[in-house]
C-alpha cells in the first residue's frame, strides 16, 4: 500500500516552491474551476449580447432569498477559516464546532436554494423557458453541485477524517486549509453569480 511509501512534502513545504503538495494541487484544481465557470460566464455574455430581449432577474427571482444565501455563504467562509485557526491553536473540539457550523451553513444554503427552485417550477419557469432561465438553472445548479461536493469533503473531515489529527496533526491541518481554499472559491463563484443573475437589469 502507499503507506509504505512516504511521499515527501505531504506535510511540510518544499523549500524552493514554498508549497506542500496538496496546496499546489488545489490551486491547480481551482485554476481549472476558474476556466469552467469562466466559460459559463462567457456564455452568459455572448448570449446576452446576441439577444434582443433579456429578462431582469429581479422580476421573478427572489432577491431576499438570494441575499440571505449570500450572507449564509460568507458566514460559512468565516467559520471555515475559524475551524482552520482552531486547529492551528491545537483545539480539536473548537475545530469540530466551526466545521460543523460550516456544514450547516452549506445545508442552509441548499435548502433555501431548493425552495427557490421549487418556486420557479411552480410558476412554470423551467430551463427550457428562455435562455435566461437556461443559464440560471445551469449555473446555479453546477454551483449547487460544488456546494454539495464541498459539504461531503467537509463532512468527512469533520467525522471519520478527523482521526488523522491524532496521528498526523500537521497533515490534517493542511487538509483543512485545502478544503478551505476550495470552499472560499465556491463562495466566490456565488458572489459573482448573485449580481449577474439577480441584479443586472434586463434589456
Amino acid at each position: 500500500m502507499s503507506a509504505a511509501i512516504e511521499i515527501p512534502y505531504n506535510v511540510e513545504e518544499r523549500p524552493d516552491t514554498g508549497l506542500y503538495n496538496a496546496k499546489l494541487g488545489i490551486w491547480l484544481f481551482l485554476a481549472s474551476e476558474v476556466m469552467l465557470f469562466g466559460a459559463l460566464f462567457s456564455t452568459y455574455v455572448l448570449l446576452r449580447t446576441g439577444a434582443e430581449h433579456w429578462e431582469h432577474g429581479a422580476e421573478f427571482l427572489s432577491i431576499p432569498m438570494a441575499t440571505v444565501n449570500t450572507a449564509v455563504l460568507i458566514a460559512s467562509s468565516v467559520t471555515m477559516v475559524m475551524s482552520w485557526i482552531s486547529l492551528k491553536m491545537k483545539n480539536l473540539a473548537r475545530f469540530r464546532g466551526f466545521m460543523g457550523a460550516t456544514i450547516l451553513c452549506g445545508l442552509a444554503f441548499l435548502v433555501i436554494k431548493i425552495f427557490e427552485y421549487k418556486a420557479k417550477f411552480d410558476h412554470g419557469y423551467l430551463p427550457s423557458t428562455s435562455t435566461f432561465m437556461a443559464i440560471y438553472f445551469t449555473m446555479t445548479g453546477l454551483h449547487g453541485l460544488h456546494v454539495i461536493g464541498g459539504m461531503i469533503v467537509n463532512g468527512y473531515l469533520w467525522g471519520p477524517g478527523a482521526k488523522m489529527w491524532v496521528t498526523e496533526p500537521q497533515r490534517f491541518t493542511n487538509r483543512i486549509e485545502v478544503a478551505g481554499l476550495y470552499w472560499h472559491f465556491v463562495d466566490l463563484v456565488w458572489i459573482f453569480l448573485f449580481p449577474t443573475l439577480y441584479l443586472l437589469p434586463g434589456k
Binding site: L28, A31, S32, M35, L36, A39
Partner: peptide, 11 residues
C-alpha cells in the same frame, strides 16, 4: 489539459 478541458466540460 488543466486549462483547456474545463470549457469543453462547460460546453
Amino acid at each position: 489539459l488543466v486549462l483547456a478541458f474545463p470549457p469543453l466540460e462547460a460546453a
